[in-house]
Design a protein around this nucleic acid. Sequence first.
DNA 1: TCTAGATCGTTTGGTACCTAACTAAAACGA
DNA 2: TCGTTTTAGTTAGGTACCAAACGATCTAGA
Lengths: 189, 189
Amino acid sequence: MGTTPSSPDSTDHGTPALAMSAGLDQPEHQRLLAAEEDIQARLGDHSIDFVSLAAVSNIYRAAAAVRRRAEREILAEVNLSWGGFTILWVLWVWGEMETARLAGECDLAKGTLTGMVSTLEKQGLVERQRVEEDRRRVTVTLTSDGLALIEDVFPRFNRYEVAVTTGLSPQDKQELARLLRTVTTNAGS
Amino acid sequence: MGTTPSSPDSTDHGTPALAMSAGLDQPEHQRLLAAEEDIQARLGDHSIDFVSLAAVSNIYRAAAAVRRRAEREILAEVNLSWGGFTILWVLWVWGEMETARLAGECDLAKGTLTGMVSTLEKQGLVERQRVEEDRRRVTVTLTSDGLALIEDVFPRFNRYEVAVTTGLSPQDKQELARLLRTVTTNAGS
DNA sequence: TCTAGATCGTTTGGTACCTAACTAAAACGA
DNA sequence: TCGTTTTAGTTAGGTACCAAACGATCTAGA
């Protein structure tokens, strides 16, 4: 993902900013209202749904933060990109897989996948095989090096997932996943 | 967002896959358990926190889905990237701003911002001014064209934010934002 | 005043990502 | 049986993104 809008919600990272935070402390809350009124005034008769704005904007911010730190602290030292890691993980869980389905599982465009599989192939972590019955198609499998790597990295990654969800109860986490799934479906994955 | 791992959670997009979905229907649920046991077996004595995995993986998936569709259906027709839109939005809400803070508000690396501001400048949507007192620094402002554009686009973007959160109550949306803010903080924005 | 260090924004180099165009293979139809 | 259409994966072109190196400017300390 790159980074981006979803309208800023900067209370989350220190600076003043829009403050959709629903913070409980008074000054925070006042600033929230001030900003909202400010925007509202600027928009005239158009009405803005700040609650939806806050929900959506935080999705992007969280995703970017989680990804950046994972790349820096876990993936970089094994020389794996976020996308590369995903591919290894999917192949590890589901085994040999054709390119088209692999792209779907990894949520990547097929053209993107081609390049990333090539990179992993050069690194000796995966292998391509043409399908005999239909020579247009290609399957991808983990090599033993790839297997060893993902078995080493994934537990660390999962510990990181636990770390970034600190402060959320198991119920919170399930609720979070559920709400996000609805959004993903609405956006039409 | 880019796209990526956070371990797949593909029930969300049709294909078989990991199915952390907490689906209620029976076959779905069985598949979930089977997959979990499968991975667990593969990992031997390492234990995996599937709830955290599902929470985190869905963040990325949702962010990517939301972004892709926004770029395609809203931003493309006004020739704006997600990042470019964010910059205009921040400047619109907060007014003239120095580069460093703008990068922070937009959640972008400063080097990234430089290029994107240059693009927007070429499009005539923003302007740069050197700060008199400290000639290292630069402020960025909206031009009248930039102002007109963001006033036109933002209401549409907000309607889109409402659309992708369809099915979530206002309380759900606030809860979603709250949970995500915790994650962002944990990941150290 | 002079200089060493800190602090700006920009540049650079590299990856990742998407879309659209392309190539090759299979499937279909007359 | 031969074209046409469909369906694979790859390639090409462009943007976005980050991190690290760079150059210019300010600031301290002597």
